[in-house]
Structure formats: structure tokens, C-alpha cells
Design a protein around this nucleic acid. Structure first.
Length: 557
RNA sequence: CCGCCCAUAGCUCAACUGGAUAGAGCAACGGACUUCUAAUCCGUAGGUUGGAGGUUCGAGUCCUCCUGGGCGGGCCA
């Protein structure tokens, strides 16, 4: 179902073209500035067009006069109850009650599919997120990226895109050695050996636990071996365990990946080397001081970057170039990378790489997710990764629950810092907005439970008199429900999941208000039938929306 | 020094990519349960959108400068 705004936009623009053809209005190009919006105030209509304002200059006419001419021509359309010219030259459209009532039936028919759109039809998208190094458990910051990425995948799918989600595993490099070394040392310590624990090693408790498990399983057979000899073993053990933990955490968090992509495979297959060769052939690689440099500055980056160090080792960036080449070669039209905001300096060089490889850098969108401040007792909780002092995602999930955590992460724009107040998140009360939405859903479910108990038979649509739904609150609710698919589409196109959660909060508010003022099940059987349909549709939209956020829609609370 | 992000009610955040009188929730105060769930609703109060200019029919949103906060600027990842 095409969004209302697109429908109206087309009607307005077609009408203009008719008027041009008839010689009523001068010809002019309709720019991208023409927008259909939902006015903030009800008296400004259900939808508004800024056509008069946008076209006034090029057509050399006063905006209000232009709007007036448009209004007269548009009034032929029976769907519009009234059209007003208002303010500096807006066209305000008011639809009839019957129009909204009919829409309600359409939503009912679409059911679970309501909200889905075709904006992304035929487009393949790869969303890469979390991609945390397997050197420790996920922390709260990763959780934010996970929630945003997972929800975005759901939303993009709903908007018609073909979506794959992917976790890029950085299983190569110094950090892997550091990890293995850390476990090795803790293993030595476990058997009472005194060791010097270097500052760059991972100091978290989980390292000790891994060392302990290895000791319990393998005894002291590595105790007298050189680190060089058994480093691979310790590294592999550590990575496997940490990864198992990460996957478990993500599973609990309802975050699922289609692919787990290992950096190591890019190196092992020679794909990274091959990619660098390709760039060399294109003449964008040069040698300096014994290292290979990529001329990213020619593609808008601040300065050139090393892809191969003078010691012959490829950089992380080299692998990342190869990785993005690989993504594009897999046939994705659009790439979405979700990174922590501390990696923002990395964006220009990856875009440079994509361009140098002959692709449009606009195919990559990088979502920079800002950091999360954990607040408890009104105070900021210190987070030091190296020192191993940080609150893990798992701890937060065990503490406040998946729904509340996801909702908090998804009720904010990505590019602003997030204060995660544990005290508020913990509260199962009105302070916590997730329950506000869930409660609306649960309330509606209990309406139907009551209807069943009282033996109210739900009639087929054809026998329901929808014109009985004419109360202002009912009309308002119907209008709002109709907007859902547009919200989903806008959320997908702009890569902003928070739009869905704000929509749901507002919808829940309307429902609660209605619930307090009116009764779904009343003495009038016909009105009851009509209202139950409204309840049913509202429940569906709430559930569809919550599903996009990965939040449960409970039937009871 | 340079670059990116942020700054909106006491607090946490919105504002549909430039629209009309900037909105919610929490906190504060005052009300509403004999009813399908009061995890709710109604009302009151709360603002020079950090500051100063500029762009135009119109700016929280765009451009410049300033202030304050966050993060980057390795042949680390």
C-alpha cells in the first residue's frame, strides 16, 4: 500500500500538470521541495502540501493565489472532504470519515503484513554490525549497536529490501596474540607461578576463568612450555570461548546474524593481497619508506594510509578494503555499516577504497552509534575496557531485561550520546516507556479475552457498520494507524529505527486515552462490533511495530 | 593545531531532512478506580531551542564565527 503522502503528492502534481495543459497555470518544473506533511495541528488538516510556497517563485505568482487555483481544481476529487488554503499558502486537505473507516478495513485485511512497503523492492542490502573483537564479552555499547542493527534489519525488510545481516570477526592481528598471551599468563598464575602481567594484556576476570577452565581440562601440561609453543592453542581456546559467550548474549538479546564473516579467511585465501594488487593496477598505491601506501587523499581523505607495513604485514585497513570489495562483489546494492562513533575518522578512507575500486561510495552508509553512559545512583559508572572494569551487556540484560534494554536503545537517535539510567530501566513502572507501549497491547488483548468470556461473537467485516466509528478520538486513532507504513518506510530509508518507537509511544498514548474515555464492549452490539474492529487493528499495529523493534508484545501484564 | 558529532522544559529525549502556535515521558502540584488491567487518564506549571550574525515567504533544522562537552588525527585495531 502506497503511503498516503505519496498518493496525495501525485494527485497534487497531476492536477498541476492538468492545469498547465489547460493553460490555466504557467509551466514550471516541480522540484524536490514539494512535500506532503502531516501538520502539527489538527485544524491544519490531515495532510498539507507546500506546493504554492515552493512554486510561487518560479511561476511568478503569489503563493496564496497559486494555492487557491490548485484548490479549486483539486476539489473535484471526492476523497477530499474539504481543502483549505491557509497560512502563507499551504494547501490543507481534510478527508471524510468514510475515507478513514474504509482504510481501517484495509489494515484489517493486511494484518501482520500491514506496515510493509515496497520502497526497497529489488534492492539487496547488507547490514554489518556489532563486529566486536573476540577479546572480551560484549559491553553495553555493543548492545546499542546490536539493537540498532537488528532492528534496522527488521525495518528494512518490512520496507521491501532484501536484507542480510553480518558480523565481521576480527580474528587476525596483534590483539589475538595479546589475548592468547593474557590467557597463557593467567594459566601460569593458576598453578602458582609468579608472572609479570603486562599492561597491554587483558585484565578482565573472564580471562582468569578461561585459564582456569583450560587448567582443569588439560592439567599442567602447558606449564613448562614456552609461550611461543602454545600461544596458538591458548588464543584459539580463548577466542572460541569468548565467541560462544558473545553468540549466547546476542541470542538472549534476540539479535541474529545471517553471516559470520571471518577476517582470517580473507587473508588465507589471498583475497587481501589480490585486492591490493587491483589497487596497484589502478595506480593508487605507491611505496614510501619501505611501506605500501594507498592514495586515499585523492578520494577525499585527509591523508594517505598504509596498507602494507615495511615489515611486510598487511594492515587492518587493507583487510577492510578487501572486505568491502567482497561485500560489493556479493551483489549488494547498499551497504550499511554500524560502527562505534570513535571510529568516525575511518569513514573517509573506507569510502575512498570503494571509490578507488570503481564503485559509487554512496552505496555505503555508515551509521555512527554514539557511546553509552551507564548511570547508577545518579552517578556515571566508570568503564575501563583494558582494566577489565566494565558492565557487560549480559549483566544489563539480566538486570533490566531484554525488552526494556532494547527499547531504551531504540528510542534515541544514533548520533546522540545515551544516558542509560539503570535505576529507571529497572523500574517496571510508568517511568519506563517500554511498558507504556506493551501495556496498551496487553489491554487490548484483555478486551478480547473479556469479549470471549461474555460470549460476544466477532462478526465478519461485511456485517460491521463502520460509520459508527465517528467519535473524534476514533477518527484520530484511525488517521494515526494509517500512517504506520510511512513511518516504517521513512525509518528504513533514513536508517532511523527510533522513528518506529516514537510512533508506537504516541499510538499507545492515543489508545490509553481512548480506553479511559470509551468502552469497547458496551450495551450497543453494533457499536461494540465496530469498536472491537478498531481495537483489533490497533492491537495489530502495536504488535507489528514492536516486532520491528524486537520487543515482545505481551497479551497479559 | 586540524577534523567529525552533540547542545532543545529541572531530568531523559522528539520534532516526518526548511514549514504554520517547538512536543512527549519522568520529576512537581491538583484531580479521576463499583466498569474491558489505575503499568492508565485529565488538569496546572515548566522554553529567547548554548550565544552572535547570515541565507528566504519561513530556521531547532542550512552557512560563518564564538562558547561548552564527547571522540578522532600511528607502518595499532
Amino acid at each position: 500500500m502506497a503511503g498516503m503522502r505519496n498518493i496525495i503528492k501525485k494527485i497534487v502534481e497531476d492536477t498541476y500538470k492538468e492545469l498547465v495543459k489547460d493553460g490555466v497555470l504557467p509551466d514550471g518544473e516541480i522540484g524536490s521541495g514539494h512535500l506532503i506533511s502531516v501538520p502539527k495541528m489538527e485544524k491544519h488538516g490531515d495532510y498539507a502540501s507546500n506546493f504554492g510556497l515552493v512554486m510561487a517563485a518560479s511561476l511568478k505568482m503569489p503563493p496564496r493565489k497559486l494555492a487557491e487555483i490548485m484548490k479549486n481544481a483539486l476539489s473535484n476529487n471526492p476523497d477530499f472532504q474539504t481543502i483549505e488554503v491557509a497560512g502563507p499558502g499551504f494547501l490543507n486537505f481534510f478527508f471524510s470519515n468514510e475515507f478513514w473507516q474504509k482504510r481501517l478495513l484495509k489494515i484489517k485485511k493486511e494484518g501482520e503484513a500491514f506496515g510493509q512497503g515496497s520502497e526497497g523492492a529489488g534492492k539487496k542490502v547488507l547490514v554489518e554490525f556489532v563486529s566486536a573483537n573476540p577479546t572480551g564479552p560484549l559491553h553495553v555499547g555493543h548492545g546499542r549497536g546490536a539493537a540498532v542493527g537488528d532492528s534496522l534489519c527488521r525495518i528494512l525488510k518490512a520496507a521491501g529490501f532484501q536484507v542480510d545481516s553480518e558480523y565481521y570477526i576480527n580474528d587476525v592481528g596483534n590483539q589475538m596474540n595479546t589475548l592468547g598471551r593474557s590467557v597463557y599468563l593467567r594459566y601460569q598464575e593458576y598453578f602458582g607461578k609468579e608472572v609479570e602481567f603486562p599492561d597491554e594484556c587483558y585484565k578482565g576476570e573472564y580471562i582468569k576463568e578461561i585459564a582456569k577452565e583450560i587448567a582443569e581440562r588439560h592439567g599442567d601440561r602447558f606449564l613448562h612450555k614456552d609461550m611461543e609453543e602454545c600461544l596458538d592453542f591458548f588464543t584459539r581456546e580463548a577466542v572460541d570461548r569468548i565467541f560462544a559467550g558473545i553468540r549466547e548474549d546476542l541470542d538472549i538479546f534476540r539479535v541474529h546474524f545471517d553471516n559470520w564473516f571471518s577476517e582470517k579467511t580473507l587473508h588465507d585465501s589471498g583475497y587481501v593481497e589480490e585486492t591490493i594488487s587491483m589497487l596497484m593496477d589502478k595506480g593508487v598505491i605507491y611505496e614510501k619508506d619501505g611501506a605500501l601506501w594507498f592514495k586515499t587523499s585523492e578520494f577525499g581523505d585527509e591523508k594517505d594510509r598504509v596498507v602494507k607495513r615495511s615489515n611486510g604485514v598487511l594492515t587492518y585497513f587493507a583487510a577492510d578494503i578487501a572486505y568491502h570489495r567482497n561485500k560489493l562483489e556479493r551483489g549488494y546494492d547498499m551497504l550499511v555499516d554500524i560502527w562505534g562513533a570513535d571510529h568516525h575518522g575511518y569513514v573517509p578512507r573506507v569510502k575512498a577504497a570503494i571509490e578507488a575500486l570503481g564503485h559509487d561510495p554512496k552505496r555505503l552508509s555508515v551509521l555512527l552509534v554514539q557511546l553509552v553512559n551507564l548511570i547508577e545512583g545518579g552517578k556515571l559508572k566508570a568503564m575501563s575496557t583494558r582494566a577489565g572494569e566494565f558492565v557487560t551487556l549480559r549483566q544489563v540484560l539480566d538486570d533490566v531485561g531484554v525488552d526494556a534494554t532494547r527499547f531504551i536503545f531504540l528510542t534515541r537517535k544514533c548520533d546522540s550520546h545515551l544516558d542509560f539510567d539503570l535505576d529507571i530501566a529497572r523500574k517496571q513502572s510508568q517511568e519506563n516507556p517500554v511498558y507504556y507501549v506493551q501495556y496498551a497491547h496487553a489491554r487490548l488483548c484483555s478486551v478480547f479475552a473479556t469479549a470471549r468470556e461474555r460470549g460476544v461473537e466477532i462478526l465478519p467485516h461485511s456485517k460491521i457498520d463502520l460509520t459508527l466509528l465517528k467519535d473524534p478520538e476514533e477518527i484520530r486513532l484511525m488517521k494515526f494507524l494509517v500512517r504506520f507504513p510511512e513511518v516504517v518506510t521513512a525509518s528504513a530509508v533514513n536508517l532511523e529505527p527510533h522513528r518506529v518507537s516514537y510512533f508506537l509511544t504516541e499510538l499507545a498514548g492515543m489508545l490509553h486515552k481512548y480506553y479511559t474515555k470509551h468502552r469497547f464492549i458496551g450495551d450497543d452490539p453494533e457499536l461494540t462490533q465496530a469498536r472491537l474492529l478498531l481495537a483489533d487493528v490497533t492491537r495489530t499495529v502495536l504488535k507489528n511495530g514492536l516486532t520491528l523493534l524486537g520487543v515482545d508484545a505481551p497479551e497479559k501484564m
